[in-house]
Design a protein around this nucleic acid. Structure first.
Ligand SMILES: [Mn+2]
Ligand SMILES: [Mn+2]
Ligand SMILES: [Mn+2]
Ligand SMILES: [Mn+2]
Lengths: 217, 217
DNA sequence: TTTTTATATTAGGCATACCTATTTTAACGA
DNA sequence: TCGTTAAAATAGGTATGCCTAATATAAAAA
C-alpha cells in the first residue's frame, strides 16, 4: 500500500499539473514544504513503484496508475470535506486539514458508503469536482474572475480550498460556488476589480479575483 | 503530539489492565504483534514522555496523563465504530479495523461534533462503554456468561470487539448487547454451556461464553 | 543453594522520510 | 564559446519504529 507520505506527493503532483507534463522538483518542494532533496528522493521512489516517471533534471510526471491513485485520494478528501460541512456542520475554512488526514485512512468500502450517505455529491464544499469511484473527473471549462470584462457576469465554480483566511473573507463577501457575480470595473495594471455580488458592490484585489474560477454567463 | 504508534501502545496498555498494575512486556508484544525488544524500547520512550512508568523486568503502567490519552483514543475509536454501524450501515464485525485507523486522525473538534451528531452514544456497537470527553469511563459490574449457574439469566453487556469470525458467529446466535440469555446447563471441566437466547437453545463453547460479559438478572 | 528456564534487555540493523552541506548539471548571457 | 547562475542531484546524517541475535536477569525447580 502507498504510505501517507506517498499519497500526499501523488495528490500534490496531480494538482500541480504533473498528470500532464513534467513537474519541477522545486515546485513540488514548495507546495509540500519539504526540501528539494526530499522531493528528488521521493520522485525516484515513485518511479520505482511505477506511479510516476522521473527524469533527473527534467521533472516528475504521473503514470496512469499514479493518476488513478491520486484521484482516489482526492475523491476521499472531497467526500470527507462534504461530510464535515454537510453532516457535522463545520465551516468550509475548517475542513481541509481534517480531510487531509482522513483521506489516508479510508478504505474503498468506507469511501463507497460515505458517498452513498452523502447522496453522491458532485463537488466538494469549495466547488471542486468529485472524481468518480472509477477514477474519472470532469473539470468544467472555467476562467478566473479577473479575466472578465466590465459588465460580464459569471457563476462561481470553485475557489482555493487551503487558504483559511481567504475562505473566511470570501464567506463575508458571499463569494461561494453557485453565486452570481458581475464585474463592474477593472483597474489597470492588475489592479482591483469592482464586483457586484447579489445586491452589494465590493472592491476585490486582482490577486484574489484571479483565484476565483467562474463560468461566464 | 503522540504518534499513531504511541497511541496504539497507550490503548493496548489500558485495555490490558496496565492502567492499574504493571503490565508485562510480553503480553503487550503479543497483543500488538510486535517483538518484545520493540515493546521494551517503546516502554522506555513512554516513560520519558511522562505517559507511563516503566521499571525494567517489572513492567509498564500508565500515568494519569497516559490514562487520559488512552481514554481519548478509545473514545474516538468507539465513536467512529458507532458512526460506521449506525450511519454508514456497516456490520459490527467490519468496524474495528476502520476505527483503529480513524481514531488517530481525529481532532478534538471532530470528536465533539461526531458525538453530537450521534446523539452522545453511551456504548460502542459491541457494548463497551464510551469514555466521556473529560476522560472518565464508567464500567458496569459484569461477569462472564460462563460464570452463570444453570437456571440463571443475564443481559449481555459487551462482547469482544476485534474477533471478526466470533462476531459473525454471535450475530447468528443473536448474542448482542441488551439480549437476554439464560443458562440451561453447563458441562463440567470448562465444557460447553447450553443457553437459551430468545426462544432458541444453543450449545456454546466455554471459551466463547467466557468472553461474553453479562449483568445477572 | 545451585541450576534451569522463561522473560526481558541490549546490541546492532533496516526502511521510511525527513534534513543540511556539497557537488553536479543545464541553461543563459556575455 | 565560455563563464555564471539557478536548479537539482548526491553525500551524509537524524528520528521513528520496527526487526533478529546475543546477553542478562529473575523466578522456579532440583
Ligand atoms: Mn493528506
Ligand atoms: Mn475542497
Ligand atoms: Mn489504531
Ligand atoms: Mn467496539
Amino acid at each position: 500500500m502507498a504510505t501517507q507520505s506517498t499519497e500526499e506527493y501523488l495528490e500534490a503532483i496531480y494538482k500541480l499539473g504533473g498528470e500532464r507534463e513534467p513537474l519541477a522538483i522545486s515546485v513540488l518542494a514548495e507546495r509540500l514544504s519539504v526540501s528539494s532533496p526530499s522531493v528528488s528522493e521521493m520522485a525516484r521512489k515513485l518511479a520505482e513503484q511505477g506511479l510516476a516517471s522521473y527524469e533527473p533534471y527534467k521533472g516528475v510526471t504521473l503514470t496512469a496508475e499514479g493518476q488513478a491513485r491520486a484521484l482516489a485520494v482526492i475523491r476521499r478528501h472531497r467526500l470527507w470535506e462534504r461530510f464535515l460541512t454537510d453532516t457535522l456542520g463545520f465551516s468550509w475554512d475548517q475542513v481541509h486539514d481534517e480531510a487531509c488526514r482522513l483521506e489516508h485512512v479510508t478504505s474503498p468500502l468506507v469511501e463507497e458508503r460515505l458517498a452513498e450517505f452523502l447522496e453522491t455529491p458532485q463537488t466538494c464544499p469549495h466547488g471542486h469536482p468529485m472524481p468518480t469511484a472509477q477514477g474519472k473527473v470532469t473539470v468544467e471549462a472555467a476562467r478566473p474572475l479577473s479575466a472578465l470584462e466590465p459588465g460580464q457576469r459569471g457563476v462561481v465554480l470553485w475557489v482555493p480550498e487551503e487558504k483559511v483566511e481567504m475562505l473566511q473573507y470570501l464567506t463575508a463577501l458571499g463569494l461561494k460556488p453557485q453565486a452570481t457575480v458581475q464585474v463592474e470595473a477593472v483597474a489597470p495594471f492588475q489592479g482591483p476589480l469592482t464586483v457586484r455580488i447579489g445586491e452589494a458592490w465590493h472592491p476585490l484585489g486582482w490577486e484574489v479575483a484571479s483565484q476565483i474560477m467562474v463560468r461566464l454567463l
